[in-house]
Amino acid sequence: MMRTWTVRAGRAAIVLALLGLVTMSLPMLLTGNPALSVLGPDATPERIEAFLAELNLDDPPPARLADWLAAAAQGDLGTSLVTGRPVADEIARRLPVTLELLIGGQIVALAIAVPLAMASAWKPGGRVDRAGTLASFLLIATPPFIIALGLIAVFAVALGALPATGWRDAWIDPAGHLRHLALPVLATGLAEAAVLVRLLRAGLIETLDQPYILAARSRGMSAPVLLATRALRPSSFSALTIVGMTVGLAFGGSVLIESVFAIPGMGQLAMGAIETRDFPVIEAVIIFSGAAVVVASIAVDLIYSLVDPRTRNASR
C-alpha cells in the first residue's frame, strides 16, 4: 500500500516538473508581446527591450523554472505586469471562487445524474430512460454558452428570480452570494450531468446483468434499495473517472462560465492574462491549476481503492 502511494506521489512530481517546463517555454511559443499592453504603442524600442530583459523571458525554460520555484518557496509568485499586484494575492482571492463554482457544479451534476441514471437503467427503453436519453443528448449537443445564456434568459430576464451576472462575497452577503451562485452552478452542473447520466446508465445496466443482482432481484429486493446498495458502487467507475477529470477541465474550462456570468475566478484571471500576455500570471495559473488537477486525480485513485477493494489488491 505505502509503496503504491509513494510511486503515485513520484509520478505526480514528474508530471508537475514537466508541466513547469512546458509553462516556462510559453513565452517562446505564444505570439504577442506583453510590452505592448503594458508600455503602450508609443514606447520606444529601447524601453521595450529593457522591459523584456527584466522579465528574463528569453532564458532557457529550466532556468526560468528554477528561478520561479526558488521565489515561490518564499511565497513570491511574482508580480502581475499589468496590475502591478502580487500574483499570490490574486490567486488566493480567485482560487476559492472557482473551487466553489466547481464543487457546486459537481454536486448539482451528481444530484441530477445519479437518480436519473438509476431510473433509466432499471428499465432500459422505458419512458424515463427515453426521456432522459433525449434530454441528456439535447444538453450534450448544446454549447455551454448557449445553456448559460438560456438560463439567464429564463431565470433572470423572464422570471426575474435570480441575478443575471455578478458575484457577492460569501462573508459579507451570504444570501446574495447564494443567489449569484445559483445560475453559474446550474449551468456547470447541467452540462456535466448530461455526460454523467450516460456513463452511469451504461455502468448500471452492465452491473444489473450480473448474477448476484439477478439473485437479489429474484428474492424481491425493492428497486431503489437494490440500486443504491448493491449496484451503484460497482457501476460508478467510469463516472468517477469523469468527475476527477472535470476538476482539471473546470480550471481551464470555467473561462466560458466565468465570462458569461462575470465571476472573478481563475478562468477570468487566465483569460485576462492571456489577452495581455501577462506571463507571471499565466505561469502561476497554469502551475496552480495543474497542481489541483494532479491532487484531484490522486484523490480519485484513492476513492477507487475504497469503492472497489479488488483494485486495492490488484495494485499490490
Binding site: 445564456l149 439567464i152 430576464v157 443575471a164 465570462s259 458569461v260 456570468f261 462575470a262
Partner: peptide, 19 residues
C-alpha cells in the same frame, strides 16, 4: 461599476435589472 466581459450577458443583465 461592474466588469461584465461577455457582451450578450451584459445586455441580459440590463434586461433583468441586475444592473
Amino acid at each position: 461599476f461592474r466588469f461584465l466581459p461577455d457582451t450578450d450577458s451584459r445586455y441580459q443583465s440590463l434586461s433583468s435589472g441586475t444592473v
